[in-house]
Design a protein around this nucleic acid. Sequence first.
DNA 1: ACCTAAACCTGGGCGC
DNA 2: TGCGCCCAGGTTTAGG
Length: 263
Amino acid sequence: MPELPEVETVRLDVLPFVRGRTVKNIEVIDHRVIRGISEKQFRKKIIGQKIVDVERRAKYLLFKLKSGKYMTVHLAMTGRLLFSPDDYVKVIFNLSGNKALYFSDARLFGKIRFYDHYPPLKLGPDPLTKDFTVEFLRKILKSRKTKIKNLLLEQKLIGGIGNIYAIESLFRSGIHPQRLANSLTDVEIKKLHKEIRKVLLEALGYRGTSDSWFVDARGKKGGFQLRLKVYGRKDEPCFKCKSKVKRIVMGQRGTYFCPKCQK
DNA sequence: ACCTAAACCTGGGCGC
DNA sequence: TGCGCCCAGGTTTAGG
């Protein structure tokens, strides 16, 4: 599932490919991925516009147009932005210079939107920016009784962490996913802060985790699935202590942890 | 204000 | 070979 490292990998691929190009035509194969506006309006708003930048906020890609307007792309779980089509293409952007960018999504959870202004996304700070400090993390944990793993997934508090990196950062921190947020000690908060940043940076270095659907814009898999410590390893031995990795469900999502290493 | 959970989707993997 | 069943989960929405 595309989380911060995967979305950033795609951004780094797509930016030099589209920057300075004009959208010549848009072919909408399945209109359900276009949200908040009709297919006809969407095409009208974007065709003829020049793309000047591609930014990322949490898991959103923001295509900045020369007019100052924006198109956002959210890949959700099976969304892809590709230089060559695959079996699940839903929208084709034909660009100047005889290029094309393909939006593919097998499960149609992905979303493409258009905004007349900078998108008003309700997102907490990106964990790789300087706004994500130990003090900030301490502040949002202090007042909340929700379970720490569920809190890490709240995009309005911290933007960009998904199921895989929430699970992996908690394992690396030795913190049980069901601990209440306000029960973490200062030492644990500091450790968690460090491990969140480390695991996201490492995963970005490997061009993301391709446990199932994720591929970059060239259709290539990332490499971080080989470095996962607990995610997807139900009943397998913990790499640290050899006890069996457990799988539970939290907030409707599979959650993996080592009952011995994570307290 | 805060938290929980259903709904949205469909390809892939599994058992039979 | 093919059918039915279940699973994957980010975000939005509804409800407590």
